[in-house]
């Protein structure tokens, strides 16, 4: 059984805007799944529909086997949601808002568990403070704490690190990896490629309401990514010219660049063999992997 199973999902807003078209997606239990797409691609719409905040026009969604409409109570009990926008009750105390969330999800009181969450998210010192006295980053963590307060099996995070500084982002990634170790399935949206690359087991790319590709993060890079070999060669000889032609090297300031596909395994060794054969010496070399960013641009281009 899958953690999330979506089939033939369509969403059209009242103003006629088609936000999602024929979404089919399966998220495995225990994985971190990143939905990647530019602003307005439909990421939030998808999360909101899964979690019961927006209505769908068509299709079926099941959460660990429970239909999200006809069995919404069972389905939603398993879900924790951190929406994109920060929305908190300013005058509530941090601990009270967590107790509220836990109660809303029909879970027995547990101050030990709530304290643990607060510690994990470095909020324990702020436990008895009103939310309005916290910084933006802390408020976001309060929202994450609320989502975790009822021990969800699947956690949805809608752009959790948008506008969050580097250190907080790294901390959050650590938190998410810890949750994953505890068996929580994580579904996050982002438009930071780095985030998907660092965190996700699998990545789905969404563009204009359609899912373009779903792939293991490493596979996606392998399949569509390119590597560039940057090499510095001092002496320009006749034989080098031939090699430049053979491998269509590009010249960049004082180096030559060799672009090749990740799955083209032989090209590099052939290249070096040729260099050797022609006694061309190089001074320095560097290999650059293309980022998911470039992969992404590649995909959308098609």
């Amino acid at each position: 059984m899958h953690a999330i199973e979506i089939s033939k999902l369509d969403k059209r807003y009242d103003n006629g805007l088609k936000a999602l078209t024929n979404i089919n997606l399966k998220v495995k239990k225990g994985e971190i799944f990143a939905l990647l797409g530019p602003n307005g691609a439909g990421k939030s719409s998808l999360i909101n529909i899964i979690c019961g905040i927006a209505k769908k026009n068509n299709g079926k969604i099941s959460i660990l086997g429970f239909d999200n409409i006809s069995q919404y109570k069972q389905a939603r009990s398993l879900i924790g949601l951190v929406p994109q926008e920060i929305a908190t009750d300013s005058f509530e105390k941090v601990i009270d808002t967590l107790k509220f969330s836990r109660g809303l999800f029909n879970k027995k009181k547990s101050s030990t568990y709530l304290d643990k969450i607060l510690r994990d998210l470095s909020l324990f010192e702020k436990k008895n403070q009103q939310i309005r006295t916290l910084s933006g980053g802390m408020k976001r963590r309060v929202m994450i704490a609320k989502a975790l307060s009822h021990e969800p099996k699947i956690l949805f995070l809608d752009e959790p690190t948008a506008g969050v500084d580097v250190e907080l982002r790294k901390n959050l990634w650590k938190n998410l990896n810890d949750l994953k170790k505890n068996g929580v399935t994580i579904f996050l949206t982002t438009h930071y490629i780095e985030e998907a690359e660092q965190l996700a087991d699998r990545v789905g790319v969404i563009h204009e309401g359609k899912i373009i590709v779903v792939e293991k993060t490493s596979k996606l890079l392998e399949k569509l990514g390119k590597k560039t070999l940057k090499i510095s060669i001092k002496k320009k000889t006749e034989s080098l010219k031939l090699i430049i032609k053979k491998y269509s090297l590009k010249k960049s300031v004082s180096h030559y660049l060799l672009n090749y596909d990740l799955n083209d395994k032989n090209i590099v060794s052939n290249f070096f063999k040729d260099l050797n054969k022609n006694q061309i010496e190089f001074e320095d070399l560097e290999i650059k992997k293309s980022s998911l960013e470039e992969v992404f641009l590649n995909l959308i281009d098609k």
Binding site: I53, K73, A75, R76, P83, L104
Partner: peptide, 14 residues
């Protein structure tokens, strides 16, 4: 108005 309704809408409560 404040957006906190999201939590009630996503909770297992009728």
């Amino acid at each position: 108005f404040s957006g906190t309704i999201y939590e009630i809408l996503s909770a297992p409560i009728s």
